[in-house]
């Protein structure tokens, strides 16, 4: 039997918002270490990796590993039925063909349960090699979302260049060109507003704006975002999810023809 109880159902609501435009369906792999999801978008340009650790749940039980094939549009509909402050419990029998979501209002006066059919998804799993990245940039997630939104007005691609001076985001297209440079912040009193850059060697890569704007749907999950880059390997965009886990987006670069 699988049962996971989370006092803050808002976390799951935000997780769904963070993946539902990029993925249509995905397999939630449940084990005693937690819930993991790995899926590529339909065009195989990006990969989403979600990890929610069992010790981040208020109650967690997983007697046997369980893979739940979920239609994300359906799950989004169910999550919309939950209040932000509701307590959420996910429940499924072993090798079940459905999963039940229960939502309890904080004062326990309203108890709802929704049963959703599961799908048989034979999704291929990719091996993500451990990488020591040349550049690791941490910046406010709202700032990154703003940069991706603004630059996508100028062109389909963004060039992200990281040097020891700072990180530069550039775009060019029919109306002209745009450059946004962020320097490392000196001493900021609020950690969440810092821009920090760890650079082993400078890197410059080109990415499609469309996917970056999908990734920034995860902004409500974390005040900071971490970008990891190395020459000719996918960009990693990581948002921490409270104390329970993280969501990582991998984006293949655009390369010279």
């Amino acid at each position: 039997m699988f049962e996971a109880r989370l006092v803050q159902s808002s976390i799951f609501k935000k997780v769904l918002e963070a993946i539902k435009e990029l993925l249509n369906e995905a397999t939630f792999d449940c084990s005693d270490s937690g819930i993991q999801l790995q899926a590529m978008d339909s065009s195989h340009v990006s990969l989403v990796s979600l990890n929610l650790r069992s010790d981040g749940f208020d109650q967690y039980r997983c007697d046997r590993n369980l893979s739940m094939g979920i239609n994300l549009a359906s799950m989004t509909k169910i999550m919309k039925c939950a209040g932000n402050d509701d307590i959420m419990t996910m429940k499924a029998q072993d090798n079940a063909d459905s999963v039940t979501f229960m939502f309890e209002s904080p004062n326990q006066e309203k108890m709802s349960d929704y049963e959703m059919k599961l799908m048989n998804l034979d999704q291929e799993h990719l091996g993500i090699p451990e990488t020591d990245y040349s550049c690791v940039i941490k910046l406010p997630s709202a700032e990154f979302a703003r940069i991706c939104r603004d630059l996508s007005q100028f062109g389909e691609s963004v060039v992200i260049s990281c040097t020891k001076e700072g990180v530069k985001f550039s775009a060019a297209g029919d109306i002209g060109s745009a450059n946004i440079k962020l320097a490392q912040t000196a001493n900021v009193d609020k950690e969440d507003e810092a821009v920090s850059i760890e650079m082993q060697e400078k890197v410059s890569l080109t990415f499609a704006c469309r996917y970056l704007n999908y990734f920034t749907k995860a902004t409500p999950l974390s005040p900071q975002v971490c970008l990891s880059m190395s020459a000719e390997v996918p960009l990693v965009v990581e948002y921490k999810i409270g104390e329970i886990g993280h969501i990582r987006y991998y984006l293949a670069p655009k390369i010279e023809e």
């Binding site: 195989h44 499609a208 655009k254």
Partner: peptide
């Protein structure tokens, strides 16, 4: 610039 596929970087397990 051509868009590459994520599968060309991460082998299928």
């Amino acid at each position: 610039m051509a868009q590459s596929s994520i599968k060309s970087f991460f082998p299928t397990r």
